[in-house]
Design a protein around this nucleic acid. Structure first.
Length: 306
RNA sequence: GGUGCCAUAGCUCAGUUGGUAGAGCAACGGACUGAAAAUCCGUGUGUCCCUAGUUCGAUUCUUGGUGGCACCA
């Protein structure tokens, strides 16, 4: 697709609880545009509290996409997100020169900005059979098969990581080609310009915010929200901080207090992992959201970059 | 006021028959192209409360402090 004017995707990213939502809403309002969420969990309408979805007030200020747009019962992946987001962006860029994307799911952001290699979608049946083989025959057995089908990737892969090994096998089996021969690592060129804005704050401040936010979630009814989806606990969408811990509490494995402490800790660790992911992307311009008027600072920067 | 016990990692504590120390939790660093809030890998980060002794050497023993706890007044 070729546009007759320069189109910009402004990506607001950063760890959880840094204040991305506020920045993105302010930015979208001043740019007179809409927001595309890039969050692998806020898309599930059953999980408003635990995923810290934007508030109804915030949603009323700017039109948001991919917020509460799906159900936890429909499996979804980053690959599908790439497709959905590109279709949506094509529509939005007809109306707007600038679109704001906001989220903390690094892989999803990369999918949109850099693209994935052309690989057929995941086959649920195959994944299921690999999962049960992992359980029954063990990781070593799957590793043996991977060594046979793709010796090159076998050397490279993290052999302790079942997800990586199974994913590689999946691709080898469905395509009939070694995974390593398909993985190019090449970035796709998008028909729009990309401006990445990072939102961060000092670690200790962020951890305080995370801890406080979890307490607020509990006050807002996180426990009940988790109970409502308990029967779907095996769905991928519920392999999520805030829910796994509550499920362990419901199962009597831990106390309610322990569950809350673990939600805080796991949120902190999640934030750390997000930092690690974003740290290697040198194209991100970072802003400290613990300082007054970040939204204005970010807007000035973006306006200058358009 | 007296007596006793305690003081070691961010927290709870173990330990060193005198050779500068280690567990759990927390924390920290990293990987990651269709499960990604997932999954996986790595790392002790320390005035052993202070002071003066004894000693080749003190976190360990002794003296005197300081702080905390308990009991007695």
């Amino acid at each position: 697709m070729i546009y007759n004017r320069r189109k910009n995707l402004i990506v607001v990213l950063g760890a959880t609880a840094t204040g991305k939502t506020d920045v993105s809403v302010a930015l979208a309002r001043r740019l007179g545009t809409e927001i595309v969420s890039c969050d692998s969990r806020q898309m599930y309408r059953e999980l408003p509290i635990g995923t810290a979805m934007p508030s109804p007030e915030q949603l009323a200020q700017v039109k948001h996409h991919f917020i509460a747009s799906r159900s936890i019962v429909e499996p979804y992946t980053s690959g599908l997100y790439e497709q959905d987001a590109l279709v949506l962006l094509a529509e939005l860029f007809v109306k707007y020169d600038n679109v704001v994307m906001v989220g903390g799911s690094g892989l999803y952001i990369n999918a949109v900005c850099d693209g994935f290699d052309e690989i057929p979608p995941t086959d649920p049946t195959l994944r299921e059979s690999l999962t049960s083989r992992l359980r029954n025959e063990g990781l070593d057995c799957l590793l043996e098969e991977l060594r046979r089908l793709d010796p090159k990737y076998y050397e490279k892969v993290d052999r302790n990581n079942p997800h990586r090994v199974m994913r590689a096998l999946e691709v080898c089996i469905t395509t009939g080609h070694p995974y390593s021969s398909i993985r190019s690592g090449a970035k796709v060129r998008r028909p729009f310009n990309i401006i990445k804005v990072g939102v961060a704050m000092p670690r200790t401040l962020l951890y305080d915010r995370i801890n406080r936010r979890v307490d607020i979630m509990v006050e807002q009814g996180l426990e009940q929200e988790a109970r409502n989806v308990y029967s779907f606990r095996n769905m991928n969408a519920l392999q999520t901080v805030g829910y796994s811990e509550m499920f362990d509490f419901f199962d009597g494995k831990i106390s309610r207090e322990e569950a809350i402490e673990l939600i805080k800790r796991n949120s902190r660790r999640y934030a750390k992992r997000q930092d690690t992911w974003f740290a290697r992307d040198s194209s991100i311009m970072w802003f400290d959201s613990s300082e007054e008027g970040v939204a204005d600072t970010v807007f000035d920067y973006v306006a200058g970059a358009l």
